[in-house]
């Protein structure tokens, strides 16, 4: 958390405690109104703190902690500077150091920057070994650019889904830009799905990643968690199964997933395009494990589930009622 946000949270905590008193002086009342109106983030921080204070969960936790023996304190990582900030500071210090080196050596820095463009043909996921030792599986139709510098590893995922198994490096950070959101990692394995409707989904299989979605929205995702960002809406995803996403092996795990999303997955793999006769069919929800490497089998399963029909019409499959 940046020091600035830490201060906001601290003020919010002070106000939450004051608001739980039976009397508030007129001076404090006026001060609260002033504080609330100075910055919209104050309202949000206050809302989050008040949610904690008022929750039954907090009450249960206090009861539990009061009845249980204390635990050993952990090294304090609640400093105003979070790991992310610290990591960034370290990275920029390193970057500065490396920059000095570069300028000391008479070398055009362009020589040190690698740019590589990766594409996977429609219907065919591809695996790439990056020069830093990381591995990427790019879904069919996926497009990404890699920019390697002595101080950073930057991926821009233009389209599709990619599973990253990142080689750990102390100095060079690894980041993925999806346009509306960015992911920053140390050494880790994670999946990013950039869907055609603008939704971005991130699932972490190992390690820890930080996600930034602009406007101060940021999350830290440990292994076993995932997040889906669609504009202003954010929801968490169920814990991923296994050590890599199912699509890498030609499968897709749906869990109350809209049919439209399943079709998008199919179209990344299938050489023959799948279409819906009625777009409303895309809103139907499906659950289960689908072998997307066999599109026709998936269509059969879908047809049985919702009493639909499908046929091959020229260059595409058409699904209809």
């Amino acid at each position: 958390m940046p020091p600035e946000l830490y201060t906001v949270d601290r003020m919010a905590a002070i106000w939450v405690e004051r608001m739980s008193r039976s009397v508030l002086s007129s001076e404090l009342a006026a001060e609260f109104d002033r504080w609330i109106t100075t910055d919209p983030r104050h309202v949000e921080s206050y809302a989050r703190m008040q949610a904690l204070w008022q929750s039954d969960g907090f009450e249960d936790a206090l009861q539990e902690a009061g009845d249980s023996p204390p635990l050993p304190a952990v090294p304090n990582d609640n400093d105003p500077l979070s790991w992310l900030a610290r990591h960034r500071m370290m990275a920029s210090a390193m970057a500065a150091a490396v920059l000095c080196l570069i300028f000391a050596v008479p070398l055009a820095s362009n020589l040190l920057i690698d740019r590589v463009h990766y594409e996977a043909r429609k219907g065919e996921a591809r695996q790439f070994a990056l020069v830093d030792g990381s591995h990427v599986t790019l879904s069919g139709g996926g497009v990404m650019d890699l920019r390697l510098t002595p101080w950073s590893r930057e991926v821009k995922l233009e389209k599709g889904e990619a599973f990253f198994d990142v080689a750990h490096e102390k100095i060079r950070s690894f980041s993925v830009d999806m346009g509306t959101a960015q992911v920053e990692v140390l050494g880790t394995a994670f999946d990013i799905d950039r869907r055609s409707d603008g939704t971005v989904a991130v699932q972490v299989f190992r390690g820890l990643v930080g996600v930034h979605a602009g406007a101060g929205r940021q999350w830290r995702l440990p292994a076993g968690t995932g997040l889906e960002i669609a504009g202003d809406r954010v929801r968490s995803l169920p814990e991923p199964i296994g050590s890599a996403p199912a699509w890498v092996d030609g499968w897709y795990d749906a869990m109350d997933t809209p049919v439209s999303q399943l079709i998008e997955q199919l179209n990344r793999v299938s050489a023959t395009r799948v279409t819906l006769a009625d777009p409303a069919l895309g809103n139907l929800l499906v659950s289960g494990r689908y072998q997307i490497s066999k599109p026709e089998a998936v269509l059969d399963a879908l047809a049985v589930t919702y009493n639909l029909t499908w046929r091959k019409a020229g260059d595409h499959y058409a699904i209809s009622r």
């Binding site: 601290r10 905590a13 002070i14 703190m49 904690l52 101060g216 999350w219 968690t225």
Partner: peptide, 26 residues
């Protein structure tokens, strides 16, 4: 007393954020 409460609440909020997935700001 207030300082303890304030500091404790901020720690709890951060523990909660660290443990899982929670939007920070909007």
């Amino acid at each position: 007393v207030e300082k303890h409460i304030t500091r404790g609440l901020v720690d709890l909020r951060q523990a909660f954020e660290r443990a899982g997935i929670e939007p920070v700001g909007e």
